[in-house]
């Protein structure tokens, strides 16, 4: 079974994935384009999403070895997202990757940093993009009647595309705030 879905919120993604697993599936692949592949299974599986910033080869090996010892299977996700996908057979009381407040708090802190940096990048890129060009062509506003509307409708998709980095910056700002609210619940 293949499903197409795009997420902007790591916790929503985790919830959705576990909903699929509860219907008797296990996840076998996740592609960068938002395609999740599942296969039928008789076992109950559970998935947990972790976010770790850049890990060098040695750090990644240690990280992976530790999770694998606990029975977690690594599913490689989109290379740049930094999200680490872990799946294992469900076992009562052993289905979480964080078991105390401090580590849960640090997880939200890592998410905050991620949203902050990516958000700043989008903001910076938007500013560069909009600085030296208007959203619509200058000539558009002097057109009249049907011609204006045709040109307007033609240009609008491109304008939306141009606005994408700004939209991303806003969404990342929101996810920064959400991660911050969770973080403040857990920090000691």
């Amino acid at each position: 079974m293949k499903r197409f879905k795009v997420f902007f919120d790591i916790e929503k993604e985790e919830r959705w994935l576990n909903e699929q697993l509860q219907q008797g599936y296990r996840c076998t692949a996740i592609s960068g384009l938002g395609i999740y592949t599942f296969e039928k299974t008789d076992q109950r599986y559970v998935m947990r999403l972790d976010y770790q910033g850049r890990l060098n080869k040695g750090e990644f090996d240690d990280y992976k070895a530790m999770y694998e010892d606990f029975g977690w299977e690594y599913l490689s996700g989109p290379a740049l997202s930094g999200i680490r996908y872990w799946q294992k057979e469900a076992a009562e009381g052993r289905d979480v990757i964080f078991s105390d407040r401090q580590s849960k708090g640090s997880y939200y802190k890592r998410l905050m940093n991620y949203s902050l940096w990516l958000g700043m990048l989008c903001l910076f890129y938007s500013l560069m993009l909009y600085q030296d060009s208007n959203l619509y062509h200058e000539g558009l506003w002097s057109m009249e009647g049907a011609l204006f509307w045709k040109a307007f409708l033609f240009e609008t998709p491109f304008v939306l595309l141009k606005l994408l980095p700004a939209l991303m910056a806003v969404l990342l700002g929101i996810s920064y705030y959400q991660a911050y609210r969770k973080y403040s619940l857990f920090k000691v």
Binding site: M66, W86, F98, S99
Partner: peptide, 12 residues
């Protein structure tokens, strides 16, 4: 006290 993988990794 049953530590989870991510908690133990981070603490170490």
């Amino acid at each position: 006290v049953v530590l989870a993988a991510g908690t133990l990794y981070g603490a170490i």
